[in-house]
Design a protein around this nucleic acid. Structure first.
Lengths: 222, 222
DNA sequence: ACCTGAACACCGTTCAAGT
DNA sequence: ACCTGAACACCGTTCAAGT
């Protein structure tokens, strides 16, 4: 009688442990925040000894890098899908980028936090995980460049516009998921209107009728 | 002969240990990032046993709260000083708020990080450390309300304008201090012009001449 | 291949003890 | 008052050992 490995599933993970560890990490971040994230805790949640993760990742940081990469591709696919539906309308595509970025942060806060965590002082960030190198930022630049070429958006260059828009949605996303907003930003309804108001304030400006129109931008900001 | 306590300074800290611990924490964050911050390390840097901090703070979190409070009052005083110099010019005062916020983050990244760290999931944030309750945010609201009443700034209400402006400068600050910007944002010169371009893009908007003017804001965003 | 337990140098926190 | 060392339950990581 030849021994089968069928019920090893109860003790072994047969290669899906890697994914299960990433999943566990995300669950733990959602429950207790990124600060309390523990490699031993991840292993325990995955039902495995605390050294098992080292078969799949050289260290804790590598596991987090895998989480970040998953986040990038998830964000890319979600934004792409919504961009597809706005084909032909360049300005709508610009809005979609901003709105989808915020929505991703709100719906996947654990992924978002890992993606944009402050890098450790000593360790080098892998090139593909630098935000400006990510396909998401490249997509932003493309969409903005399209608008800029059509004269729909204005600014010194597409990169500068991207920095303004990115700063805006990045800051808002963090304020929301960190719970730093308390005023009107409580219910989902006003959050929705704040999201659109945010993008609109950047697009149309917040200059009032009595505001000076001739204020000079810093460096020929056309 | 009566024993003096004069050279206890070498072993004791005589009440200034509390401040020395805060200082040490800031130095450690600057050197190795907020993630690697260790109560034992702070104590060692202050030249004291690893339990000495408990004479001044009930736990690690309380020490960080003290750092955050110091940061808030420092930010408040720096912004106030620059606001004073812009007396009479409401719009300039608005710009000063944004620029000084970014400058504070860049010049005091350790304070800034602790002030806006994601709160632990379980623990309650002290009321005076909630960003919207802080005197800094109150000052923003006052300056914006002044502009709004004069018709210099436009929006549904001052709070909404504050959220847009805060999101913008908060996001940019984090992208800079986290090293997430790589393109033009390297040298100090372009950083200076980016800061002003950022504020200008919110003030004047990024709508181009070929952009539709009649786009509706979300909810009667006047 | 994949997983385990013991071991190491670290954590935060507590507590009895020292001046 | 202010500080100390030992002790506890945790960390991340390594390594010899098991199937």
């Amino acid at each position: 009688m030849i021994k089968t490995t069928e019920d090893d599933t109860t003790t072994y993970h047969h290669g899906n442990l890697r994914h299960r560890l990433i999943e566990s990490a995300l669950e733990m971040i959602d429950e207790s925040g990124a600060a309390g994230l523990t490699l031993r805790g991840i292993a325990k949640r995955a039902g495995v000894s605390h050294t098992a993760p080292y078969r799949h990742f050289p260290d804790k940081e590598a596991l987090l890098a895998a989480v970040a990469r998953e986040g990038v591709s998830l964000m890319l696919s979600e934004i792409s899908a919504r961009l597809e539906r706005a084909k032909g309308d360049a300005l709508a595509r610009f809005s979609v980028c901003g709105l989808a970025y915020i929505d991703f942060a709100i719906h996947h806060p654990a992924h978002f936090r890992v993606m944009y965590a402050s890098p450790q002082k000593g360790v080098a960030v892998p090139e593909d995980l630098k935000p400006e190198s990510s396909p998401v930022f490249q997509m932003f630049i493309e969409v903005i460049t399209e608008c800029w070429n059509l004269g729909i958006l204005r600014g010194e260059n597409p990169y500068r516009i991207a920095i303004s828009a990115w700063s805006l949605v990045h800051g808002f996303s963090l304020l929301v998921i960190d719970g730093h907003l308390q005023g009107e930003a409580l219910d989902a309804g006003s959050l929705e209107s704040m999201k659109r108001g945010l993008l609109y304030s950047l697009y149309a400006g917040i200059r009032g009728k009595n505001g000076p129109g001739g204020i000079q931008p810093p460096a020929g900001n056309a």
